[in-house]
Amino acid sequence: MTEKESKRVLTVCPYCGTGCGLYLVVEKGRVVGIEPDGLHPVNEGELCVKGYYGYQHIDNTERLTSPLIKKDGKFVAVHWEEALDFVARQLAKIKQESGPDAIALFASARATNEENYVAQKFARAVIGTNNVDHCARL
């Protein structure tokens, strides 16, 4: 995407389960506003307060931008290779010592279908446990 480009991207609101259609207004690679989707059968061109104004977290300076590993009680930024290697080795070790059911995965009702599918596949096919659940109950 070029920096100068200004565009509208059709997507779906990330908050409640109503699933309203909206456009992200993008300028210079940043989301700068939201417009309702007039053709959407559920929200019919309207949005609520979170739909209109709940996008600034995307650009928030507190976003995590690098993997962190806690060393001596402090988080230290590391590269993906190191973080993933650490996680993979720990998971393999625990699986070997205590079996796959000693590992549990909380999936996310906030993530996409594809990501949730991959997550449960990871739990079931890679780890070998059905200990996968998410916050539908909360």
Binding site: G17, T18, S108, N116, Q120
Partner: peptide, 22 residues
């Protein structure tokens, strides 16, 4: 039922439940 989060329905549909596959 009104689902509270954008993709609770989807997470259930995709099998993120301890008793069901996608």
């Amino acid at each position: 039922p009104l689902r509270g989060q954008n993709n609770v329905q989807g997470a259930c549909d995709m099998g993120c439940l301890p008793n069901s596959l996608p």
